[in-house]
């Protein structure tokens, strides 16, 4: 099992790395642009193929442990980068996205997963896939939004004007917020079926609520015409709350009696 993952991950990282290099050289030699794009895309395809293979092997969707969800991020984050390039003609985001994807795979290589087929009864629910997938995609969009915002901050510090960048970080945050809202409500509806009540202020729920509030605050500040360039800082930092929610919760004192800490890898 291990070997298969390492092969797939190494292959994906190699695709992204050479794809990125070709993409960078393509500024001088435009003929390299297409092969660069194809290779970058191939990296994500390799991961998608591996996920499909792993799913079949496990007999359950690989969405249970943190390590398993990192596989999905690794496959999806570069795709957001490619979409942003396609949509807004912003090319640099994809490099950050591929680097982040490589980073996630790196974590998984350093901490091999325990290969475990079991799925506890509470997770055996029709809600499992929609709830987790909606959150996954939301996190991916918000990660891309944060990276964009960070890049915008960097450009501001060098006093460059950059309106497209600010609208990209905004729309990514908006779409991410929509998915977070769905994830939160799907989670509540599922909790009612599985644990009897839709909301119990469990630490995981509390942090999911906090992340949602962070973006709710952003949207209202944006609406109130607060200086948009200042909000880039806010967007860049909001992702930290998401990170705590994603894997930090397990380490907080409040997590002792959480029913949702099984995602620990």
């Amino acid at each position: 099992m291990n070997i298969d993952f390492n092969t797939a991950a190494t292959l994906a990282i190699a695709c992204w790395a050479t794809g990125s290099l070709l993409g960078l050289f393509a500024r001088r030699a435009p003929a390299l642009k297409l092969p660069g794009m194809v290779l970058s895309l191939a990296g994500s395809m390799v991961m998608a193929g591996f996920i499909a293979f792993y799913w079949a092997l496990l007999d359950r969707p690989p969405l249970r442990t943190l390590g398993e969800t990192r596989l999905w991020y690794a496959a999806l984050i570069p795709l957001v980068g490619f979409l942003v390039e396609y949509r807004w003609k912003i090319g640099w985001l994809k490099y950050y996205c591929m680097a982040l994807a490589g980073f996630f795979l790196g974590i998984n290589m350093l901490h091999p997963e325990v290969f475990d087929k079991t799925l506890m009864p509470a997770l055996q629910s029709p809600w499992f896939i929609p709830h987790v997938v909606v959150y996954l995609v939301g996190y991916v969009l918000l990660a891309a939004s944060s990276i964009t915002a960070l890049h915008n901050v960097y450009l501001q510090l060098r006093s460059k004007k950059n309106e497209t960048g600010e609208s990209v970080s905004h729309y990514l945050a908006l779409l991410g917020f929509v998915l977070l809202s769905f994830g939160l409500i799907f989670g509540a509806l599922w909790a009612k079926e599985a644990w009897g009540h839709y909301w119990t202020w469990d630490p995981k729920e509390t942090w999911a609520f906090l992340s949602w509030l962070a973006y709710l605050g952003y949207l209202h500040a944006y609406r109130y015409k607060i200086d948009r360039s200042k909000l880039q800082w806010y967007l860049a930092l909001s992702f930290i709350v998401l990170l705590v929610c994603w894997f930090g919760v397990n380490y907080l004192p409040s997590a002792q009696n959480s029913v949702h800490t099984y995602t620990q890898s």
Binding site: T206, L210, H220, Y224, S254
Partner: peptide, 24 residues
């Protein structure tokens, strides 16, 4: 919105306390 945002921040602060300290 200004009061709304301030109250959102207050709810966030209280939730933060509840999200860090064990509720027991």
């Amino acid at each position: 919105i200004p009061l709304g945002l301030s109250l959102i921040v207050a709810i966030a602060v209280l939730s933060l306390i509840g999200g860090i300290l064990p509720q027991e």
